[in-house]
Amino acid sequence: MMLNAALLVTTLLAIIMKVQAATLPIRILTHNIRYAADPPATGEKPWSTRKQLILNELHYNTLHNPEAFICLQEVLNEQIVDIMAGLGDEWAYIGVGRDDGKTEGEYSPVIYRKAIWELVTWKTVWLNEDGAVGKKGWDAGSVRIVTIGTFKHMTSKKEIVAMSTHFDNAGAISRRESAKIIEGIAADIASPASNFSSTGLPFFLAGDLNSEITDDAYMMLNNASSLLQDTKEQAKWLYGDENTYTAFDDVDKSLIDFIFVGPRGEGDWSVEGYSVLPNRFEDGVYASDHRAVVVDGVLEV
């Protein structure tokens, strides 16, 4: 009887370990941190004041989530230097300045832990008619990009594609056409024998779309025929505010920052939680004119 009991315990432990090993928890944080404006806008503190607030947010929300990805927008070169120095050497990033493909203009970086994720390949895609570096597309007021990285989990060997983007605020056509480009990229990622994988890969898209949920760009990315799906719709738990943009006065509010996962309907992802974090506390200082969005997902391996 004792032998049978011991065997039962061993079997149960093996089953538990197998179940645990079959899933990979991943936290995704996306935040438009507001570029280092000089001079700052009304109600805005300079980057020298705001940067520690952003670093505190990033540290705290990834402290016990080793598989976390951080996706940022509106990051100037001086800001990515400050952020990477503040996060420490365990972290690395992919991304370039959108104006010249090097250091000029805003980055939309993906930041990851080097000991957890192996960077397989990465690239920046310019969101314009022909993908030309530093070119504005359609009716856009600014140059727009998406940063794309393929990562392999060191332990499980599971591969995933991460994307960070920032759509145009001025051009509705640009946002719509950018969404079409993203859809094409997502189809390539999910397809067997694609540029990304011989089997197709799970992916996520994080960023500031400058598109509310009634806007064409969001609806294109989140409709039933799209490969992407808004994590807020899937999450078992919702926490925090509704709106992600607040300006520096908490008056002009909107929901324009999102995290999508895909491919839709494939069963790779289970979204446990979705939250919108505060961007101002009792000190009255806005860390950014946007709030961060944090999603806890579980990926099958």
Rank of each mutant, 00 (worst) to 15 (best):
I80H: 11
K232T: 10
I94H: 09
K18H: 15
R34N: 01
V294M: 10
A179P: 00
Q79L: 01
P202V: 04
A140M: 08
D139H: 08
R176I: 00
A247E: 06
G43W: 03
K114Y: 11
I83P: 07
I15R: 15
W47L: 10
L24S: 08
V19W: 15
R27E: 13
I213A: 13
G134L: 01
T62H: 09
Y245V: 00
V293G: 05
G273Q: 15
R280H: 08
A206W: 06
G97Y: 02
G131I: 01
P40S: 13
N4V: 10
E90I: 12
A36Q: 13
A287D: 11
P202W: 10
I181R: 09
C71H: 12
D241M: 08
S164T: 07
F281K: 11
G262A: 04
I259P: 07
T124D: 02
T246F: 00
L24T: 06
L277Q: 13
E177V: 01
A6T: 07
E129W: 05
S194I: 04
R175V: 00
T150C: 13
K114Q: 14
M17R: 14
V146L: 09
A206M: 09
F260A: 02
G95D: 05
A224H: 12
I256S: 00
I185V: 14
D289W: 00
S164N: 11
A21I: 05
W122L: 06
N169I: 02
M84C: 14
A172L: 08
K114E: 10
L12F: 11
T231C: 15
E78M: 08
P25H: 10
A235L: 01
A140K: 01
Y286K: 03
H59D: 10
E300D: 11
V96F: 10
G149M: 00
P40W: 12
R176A: 12
P25C: 06
Y60Q: 14
W126I: 01
D89G: 10
G95S: 05
K158V: 06
G43K: 05
G101F: 11
K135D: 04
R27S: 15
S164A: 12
V96C: 11
V298T: 10
L29P: 06
N77W: 09
D188P: 14
